[in-house]
């Protein structure tokens, strides 16, 4: 059962999730006693995937494929899977990958399991472990179809170096113009700032911060840590912060290595969306705040005193470890 890994690039470079799915895919292939092929689209240096155990890369260069187009990409992945004879297709959990996943599953008549948190529990039959019920449970799911699609949760496997020589082969699929019937008109994206989807660290503020004018220290803390900023639902509902920063069950999911919640009570719907973060820190003035039950580290204290102090200490730490 050979494996196809779909790797994502942005501005010609691999996104971190691409390196993670490559690492994961080559290990899954090893477990299956097979090899992994990666599909790379508009990347400057596809052979880099060899550093993560990928021995074979199908390289596509096509201006029509920039920006991302879910239908066309799904067709390309399906064609690449056929070319590689792949029975297992691996995707990340990015917005683009999740957009494509259902379309691809339909095309390949494949069972798709999203939010997978580790290597398969068994390979024959293929059983994977995934989160369900918004991180309030796990499921072991068996994929019943001939072709199987795995959607890997962010940070579930990590980026693992395993150097092999990658053979890069040009690949092109015949992309009918009808595949582009839904087309991008405008992409509006923050540049030069960590995003909740990609960041290793997320710093998040809640209603305890009293008002939008107090976000300066949150941004400074995020800046020192190279983190993305996020917020609780009421904070975005009140218009203190943009909606795109809202995290939780009905907002963006967080699966970073570190999540720092400041002035956030830890309501069940908030936790459901951030529980996948590896290490959680809470700073809250109320020792009874439910977030203390979900966190790894906590400080009971006033954010307006603790956060500036934390920024100072982190700057000192960085200066010493630079």
């Amino acid at each position: 059962m050979s494996v196809l890994v779909y790797t994502e690039s942005e501005n010609g470079k691999f996104r971190k999730n691409a390196l993670e799915v490559a690492s994961y895919g080559s290990e899954v292939a090893r477990l299956l006693g097979s090899s992994a092929t990666a599909l790379s689209i508009n990347n400057e240096n596809p052979s880099q995937l060899g550093d993560y155990g990928i021995a074979s890369v199908l390289e596509v260069t096509d201006e029509a494929l920039d920006p991302f187009n879910a239908n066309a990409y799904a067709q390309l992945v399906a064609d690449a899977a056929a070319q590689a004879g792949a029975k297992v297709v691996i995707l990340s959990s990015s917005a683009d990958a999740k957009f494509m996943a259902g379309l691809l599953a339909g095309k390949l008549k494949a069972g798709y399991v999203p939010n997978v948190v580790g290597l398969p529990e068994s390979t024959s039959p293929l059983v994977v472990r995934r989160t369900a019920f918004s991180n309030k449970g796990f499921a072991n799911t068996k994929i019943l179809t001939d072709i199987k699609i795995i959607g890997l949760s962010k940070n579930a496997f990590g980026v693992v170096e395993n150097k092999v020589e990658a053979k890069v082969e040009a690949f092109s699929a015949s992309l009918d113009s009808s595949l582009f019937s839904t087309a991008s008109v405008e992409v509006d994206k923050v540049v030069g700032k960590a995003t909740i989807a990609d960041a290793d660290i997320v710093v998040s503020g809640g209603r305890g911060l009293k008002g939008p004018e107090n976000w300066g220290m949150i941004e400074e803390l995020a800046d020192v840590l190279g983190a993305a900023t996020a917020c609780s639902k009421p904070v975005s509902d009140l218009g203190w912060r943009p909606h795109s920063e809202h995290v939780g069950q009905t907002g963006k999911p967080v699966a970073s290595n570190l999540y720092i919640a400041i002035g956030i009570s830890g309501a069940i719907q908030h936790l459901a969306g951030v529980n996948a973060a590896k290490t959680k820190v809470v700073i809250n003035i109320d020792p009874e705040a439910p977030f203390f039950k979900a966190a790894d580290y906590g400080i009971v204290g006033d954010a307006f005193e603790v956060v500036p102090e934390l920024i100072e200490k982190l700057k000192e730490f960085k200066a010493q470890n630079a």
């Binding site: 069972g111 072991n140 019943l144 809470v282 400080i299 009971v300 934390l310």
Partner: peptide
Amino acid sequence: PASEDLRFEKPAPKGAVTLVDATQVGELV
């Protein structure tokens, strides 16, 4: 169906939070 959930599990109970005193922020770092 294309997939089947065989078994569910709840997340393992979380260990207690490590509290750091508000005057010892450096310790958190």
